[in-house]
Design a protein around this nucleic acid. Structure first.
Lengths: 236, 236
DNA sequence: TAGTGGTCTAGACCACTCT
DNA sequence: GAGTGGTCTAGACCACTAC
């Protein structure tokens, strides 16, 4: 079973990529050109490319082609360093685009924070980039009482920094969940990738030091752009 | 773009699965039967099934067919409750099969623990099940000086329990990494799934309270069987 | 406008599972 | 032995990107 041609192809493509990464400037030749070079059809070639995509070695952008994936961003969800800080700390360039600002109810946020289903939230939808590649979209759902004028003043900065500096909120209790997912068409479109692309979904429910609900967020990352790292010391 | 037929198919399949899960006993009809029912080809049908597989709703076993995936196991990598304990705590049935016991060098383990590349380790390879579904394979690399007779006495129980009870080791410092992956043919075969199936790779490097290296392990989970959960309280 | 990736058709053979 | 999923062929059209 391991002698399937598409699996041999993945090995050949791996070597080809290693040797030509710089020369190609990160972009692979067209599928039809690669299929011809390896004397096979586009279907089989795409099966091999999909395997490498699953491994995180390459990725697709829209209809623009296949690209070699940059190194994964190392991310520790147990620390609350802002996105901008830890991206820069790894020598990369962060960027944020705000996609939507509104106030409305959202059942998953309400459930996660123990609030009634019709509880309204300030909703911030934003897309974040590393070195100009869009790597995640996220929705933040903030309890309006905790940050009343949030939507008037928000413009892409760190939300946690804002909550702490302007409203003095202390993000004491965090409940984090991570599951792999296939990006839904709506999320995929905002990340400029094909629907069904593998992703990682990270949710957080955050309460303050008096157990008052503050915020709930849902992140959708491209699966190949992330390495989750947790360092623990002391007793369990 | 969202009107692609295979995306409409995923919706229809979702409903079909919801309504017939019990009746089918968890196994979907044959691909050819489904393709005929939806008046399309196997290629397009499989594209829809692959989307649902990526979402974790269904999975494949070997050449046996498509099955509805059970609920994800919730797993907190920051706690050191053993696999058997937290599986049972969620009302599921754990099982472990030992695949290999040997002593040899392993460069990734050596690097992660700060030891020379030719450092030998006691190696335990095991496959773990939840409710009789194989959900992960893992390799454990233990520094022999810390547990000399390990391979003579090991028979599938909790390794961490053994290290604590028999050798008095205190697993104080843990460095954990998680990345999504596509299962390599060797791991896929041991999990009875097709090569390239989406997985989650979890690595741990463990030192004791005096910073002495004890153990390194590599887990390969089926991506749809896991929900990672971390609960944090107190200051950051 | 030319070329690309995304989608889809209509088959085929093989290795393997099930019974 | 029958049926299944895994793999592969040789095309095709369309929507979109890049120029």
């Amino acid at each position: 079973m391991s002698d399937a041609y598409y699996l041999q192809l993945t090995e050949q493509l791996r070597h080809l990529i290693d040797q030509n990464a710089v020369h190609w400037d990160g972009k692979l030749p067209a599928e039809r050109a690669l299929a011809e070079r390896f004397a096979t059809t586009r279907v089989t070639l795409r099966q091999a490319l999909a395997q490498l995509e699953g491994e995180g070695l390459i990725h697709r952008s829209n209809r623009r082609g296949w690209f070699i994936s940059p190194a994964r961003l190392v991310y520790d969800p147990t620390r609350d360093a802002g996105f901008n800080d830890y991206v820069r700390a790894q020598g990369r360039q962060p960027r944020t685009a705000v996609l939507k600002l509104e106030t409305r109810a959202h059942v998953p946020a309400a459930r996660a924070l123990g609030l009634p289903d019709d509880q309204p939230f300030h909703h911030i939808r934003r897309r974040r980039y590393v070195d100009d590649r869009a790597v995640l979209v996220e929705s933040l759902w903030v309890v309006p009482e905790r940050a009343p004028e949030l939507l008037d003043i928000y413009s892409g900065q760190s939300l946690w920094g804002l909550l702490r500096e302007r409203w003095g909120h202390y993000l004491a209790n965090r409940s984090i969940r991570m599951v792999s997912e296939a990006l839904l068409p709506i999320d995929a479109e905002e990340l400029l990738v094909a629907p069904g692309t593998a992703g990682l979904n990270i949710n957080r429910a955050i309460l303050d030091d008096q157990q008052r609900p503050i915020e709930y967020d849902e992140e959708h990352w491209l699966h190949d752009s992330l390495c989750i790292s947790v360092e623990l010391s002391g007793q369990q």
